[in-house]
Design a protein around this nucleic acid. Structure first.
Length: 533
RNA sequence: GGUGCUAUCGUCUAGUGGCCUAGGACAACGGCCUCUCACGCCGUAAACCCCGGUUCGAGUCCGGGUAGCACUACCA
């Protein structure tokens, strides 16, 4: 009988959600959707000391932004956290009573025992004995319920002594883990230590216990998680067995890690800071340590670009296709085509994806996104245009946006990110105050002032101001005098733009209008004339 | 140190014994387009970690090296 596919993404609220975690969430989501199953979100907050306020909201908001939908558990809806599903609560810190019961079960069945060794005692032990491990060989020399009389154990607990519950790993057994990506992985139980499953200090289980209990209770069919969990997978298998749940044990798939773009090792927050790119989906203000981390969203990334980029880092489709919508990913996704080796984070490719998706967005949409950037820039320049943009009596919002959309349409193919639109469009909004030296050197000739003065007359006499008309009078004029199209047009461009760049010249004059165009040419003749003297 | 995982162009990767004189994409470089800068298009350069073995035949299977990574907490 085929089991209903139920997968989960189970992050810890210890800070911003790492981009590798986002990819794990994405693969889980794609897998669930493809099989018509459920995607759950559970918060693994069993380490109270590492809890960071706001992290949970951050994680949920990030997934919401990226379009990674949650069917059950915790999710973000209209900016608010909501819990859905019958298997809750979905925060591990709210599941204490549940864990108590299962800890007791393991204790009663002899699969676990109580240990009183303090962290300090263990530390000195580890310092004294090289490669010390709390396991079958050493546990009988430690302070635990295996070595102490039951009355003493009880007395210590009643006294309020802190203790932990450890899993009793039977030695000398080859534990087989079937991994959907890596095949059969065999590890001998001798290298496993008696893992702590529960700590009385904060009355919470550790990851290992909570994870197995919750996955079982939440009827998880597939555990898709990062490769860093592979070494503890045998322990998890042993736990399923100890509980007698081996028949419903989920399938495992351990995903390759995301590596640093340069050098070796796991991609970290530091790498992003060092190399200048975000490692987190959203900007995050860490209330605990006061740090601020940049995010993809704030850097101008489109969610669909981030998704596509991430999907292809460690996975490839059935063909040569590179551009994938979420729907296409869901259709084509397969765990078989997940790579086994780690993937170096290729930020350049991320930029390319964003460029592609930016071109797909309508000019109007981009105008909406660009507006805040534009206003900020104009404000910093003290531009009078800003008040026009903001004034309720000035240009209406829709007209304002349509002009912006127009210039975006002329320039978007040369940017990777929305904020970069400013560098490409600034001259549409603000007349040049200075002229690029390199452009002048190359494109402003001795005869240019004369050409521009003559051009002014031609322009003044234009019967109308559309591209076709202007082209129809300017080109013949250039030809008649044999001035050279390049020489005149480039000088003209410098007058309007301030540099030798930008869209087609008649597209620029069209947006600027007759009055502004003529004004800019006049100003340029004066200013550049003074510069060259 | 121990255990495990991994190993194809600079990067992401295709490749499941002959279709591989190793394919695609990003980046790089060159050209075309052109009033500029871009975009776009076309093209160039660029890789099977090493050594053995199996086989008529190995990037592909096996063994051994080597290298990288992960784990080795009362963190997840």
């Amino acid at each position: 009988m085929e089991r209903r596919v139920r997968v989960r993404f189970a992050p810890s609220p210890t800070g911003a959600l790492h981009i590798g975690g986002v990819r794990t969430a994405l693969y889980n989501y794609l897998f669930a959707r493809q099989h018509g199953g459920d995607m759950l979100l559970r918060i693994e907050d069993t380490d109270s000391t590492r809890f960071v306020p706001g992290a949970e909201e951050y994680i949920l908001e990030a997934l919401d932004w990226l379009g990674i939908g949650i069917d059950e558990g915790l999710r973000m809806r209209d900016g608010k956290i909501e819990a859905v599903g019958e298997h809750g609560p979905y925060r591990q810190s709210e599941r204490r009573e549940i864990y108590h019961q299962y800890v007791k079960q393991l204790l009663d069945s002899g699969h676990a025992y109580i240990a009183f060794d303090t962290p300090e005692e263990l530390e000195t032990k580890r310092a004294e004995i090289p490669n010390f491990q709390y396991d079958a060989r050493t546990r009988l020399q430690m302070r635990n319920s295996l070595t102490m009389p039951a009355e003493e154990v009880k007395a210590l607990i009643d006294k309020g002594e802190k203790y932990v519950v450890r899993f009793k790993v039977e030695p000398d057994e080859d534990v087989h883990v079937h991994d959907l990506i890596r095949g059969e992985v065999v590890i001998n139980s001798n290298i496993l230590d008696d893992k702590v499953l529960y700590k009385s200090a904060d009355d919470l289980p550790t990851y290992h216990l909570a994870n197995i209990v919750d996955d079982h209770l939440m009827e998880i069919s597939h555990v898709i998680r990062g490769e860093e969990w592979l070494p503890s997978a045998p322990l998890h298998v042993l736990l399923y067995r100890a509980f007698g749940w081996q028949d419903t044990m989920p399938e495992f798939a351990h995903l390759p890690l995301l590596l640093k773009p340069d050098g070796n090792g796991k991609l970290s927050k530091r790498d992003g800071d060092r190399l200048g790119f975000p490692v987190f989906p959203l900007e995050f203000h860490n209330q605990k340590d006061g740090t601020v981390s940049s995010g993809y969203r704030e850097s101008g990334y489109l969610p669909e670009a981030v998704i596509n980029f991430l999907a292809l880092l460690g996975w490839h489709g059935s063909g040569d296709q590179e551009m994938y919508t979420m729907e296409e990913l869901i259709k084509d996704f397969s765990l078989d085509r997940v790579s086994k080796s780690g993937a170096k984070f290729d930020y350049e490719k991320g930029k390319w994806f964003n460029h592609q998706y930016l071109q797909l967005r309508s000019n109007e949409e981009l105008a909406e996104m660009f507006l805040p950037v534009l206003k900020e820039k104009l404000a910093s320049l003290n531009s009078p245009l800003l008040s026009t943009l903001n004034s309720p009596y000035g240009v209406s919002r829709s007209e304002e946006l349509s002009t912006i959309a127009k210039v975006i349409g002329l320039t978007k193919d040369r940017v990777n990110f929305v904020p970069e639109l400013w560098e490409q469009t600034n001259f549409f909004f603000v007349a040049p105050t200075e002229y690029d030296e390199k452009s002048l050197k190359k494109r402003w000739k001795e005869e240019s002032p004369r050409h521009m003065t003559e051009l002014l007359e031609v322009l003044e006499g234009a019967p109308s101001w559309d591209a076709e008309t202007l082209d129809g009078i300017v080109m013949p004029w250039i030809e008649a005098h044999e001035y050279g199209v390049g020489i005149v047009m480039n000088a003209f461009r410098i007058c309007l733009v301030g540099a030798a760049r930008g869209p087609h010249i008649w597209a620029i004059t069209d947006v600027l209008g007759k009055e502004e165009t003529i004004k800019r040419v006049k100003d340029a003749i004066l200013t550049i004339g003074q510069l060259t003297i």
